[in-house]
Design a protein around this nucleic acid. Structure first.
Lengths: 211, 211
DNA sequence: CCTAACTTACTTAGTACTCGGTAAGTGAGT
DNA sequence: ACTCACTTACCGAGTACTAAGTAAGTTAGG
């Protein structure tokens, strides 16, 4: 049919076997993320994931080793996503970062699945021997450190009031955003997440500057 | 052995069969609460609960009908507990309620299981068709209404600054307390829940009064 | 340049086990 | 006599995971 040197079969774009497998893996991770968000890690079976991905259970295990391996892959990809946002934030002026929060909320609203995935997986990881526990502990510590650093640098620039503990305030800020997200996920009709975060950003600005 | 009319066997107090069954039911609910907190509703099997309660699975189902019935019983009892606290709060002067928050945190710290149970069950109830969904939606709406009312009455008494939306602020307050609790449950060594709530209570007082 | 050796990405079939739930009793207490 | 709190004995469906094989693709040696 084709006189090209590359082995073109059908309409498929030219991709190496390795590349195709990588894409397949990514696709499976996406499917697993959706299912984990809806039913939790424990509530999702390998058969559920495999079925929706159009693969067999052993085919799935070939890629991820075991069920916990699949969870780890899901968590890792979610992290890449939120890391991108963190870098975006860190690229701004500290004062500007506050104003980025509503935009963050707006973005999250369009991807409720990702937010739900995170909330569900954290709750399933509270026990010390849960498969994702150590990961989420490390993530929250890192997140608190980033926010605390932001507060510290703003303080050194003379932008904040005296008498606030950056670590405690960091935990408080993250807690509020997480908690609002949970209430919104549970009852989207009753909670306007964007309005709530906008209001909180203003509250936080008053709190930090002591105005 | 004994010439008493009442059938005393061993050290057991005299209780009717009905009363004994009720106590047994309560005991089972306590056991199920612990297991649900540790492993979630989905992660806990009837066999787990029955085994720890020293009963068979059908024996368990005799009391609760099915697994969702057991969950409902667990949720109901948790509600009785937190309702008692809500009444306690409502008995105080609005201004006093803020000062009760750290005491609330201190109490919760001693009963981490109850806090964990709540966090886990909420996350498992995010999906609209989850067994506990409607219950938690109603609970959060009621809780927001109570807090919003408190803010409104404080405002009418001229105790708060202008320009705050009671509903939005209520969601924010509940979110912060929930979020702090989650961080503490995940990593008790890194997060001092009592100190964090004490700090937040002060922040909140400044925010509400506009001082 | 071709082919044989090897690797990768799966599949079919089945393992041992757990799941929530039911039918039919049993035996003690009222 | 009857009820109630159970137990024994199941069931069909689902659980994560494994063993063994296959077709296709990749790579090294002649």
């Amino acid at each position: 049919m084709s006189r090209a040197d590359q082995p073109l079969h059908g309409d498929e774009p030219v991709t190496s076997r390795r590349e195709r497998a990588r894409l397949r893996r990514e696709e499976i991770i996406g499917i697993a993320s959706e299912l984990f968000a809806e039913r939790g890690y424990r509530g999702t079976s390998l058969a559920d994931v495999a079925g929706r991905a159009g693969i067999t259970e052993p085919g799935l295990l070939h890629h991820f080793g075991n069920k916990a391996g699949l969870l780890l892959a899901v968590i890792e990809r979610r992290d890449l996503d939120s890391e991108a946002f963190a870098m975006e934030l860190l690229g701004m002026e500290p004062a500007e970062r506050l104003r980025a929060l509503p935009e963050f909320a707006r973005r999250n609203r369009e991807r409720a699945g990702l937010a739900k995935l995170f909330t569900v997986l954290v709750a399933e990881s509270l026990e010390p021997d849960a498969p994702g526990h150590d990961h989420f502990v490390a993530r929250y510590r890192a997140l608190r450190a980033i926010v605390a650093d932001t507060i510290r640098s703003a303080r050194e620039a003379g932008l904040t009031r005296a008498g606030l503990d950056p670590e405690v305030k960091a935990a408080e800020i993250i807690a509020t955003l997480d908690g609002l997200q949970t209430q919104w996920l549970l009852d989207p009709e009753a909670v306007d997440i964007v309005a709530a975060v906008e209001s909180y950003a203003r509250t936080l600005e008053r709190d930090l500057t002591g105005s």
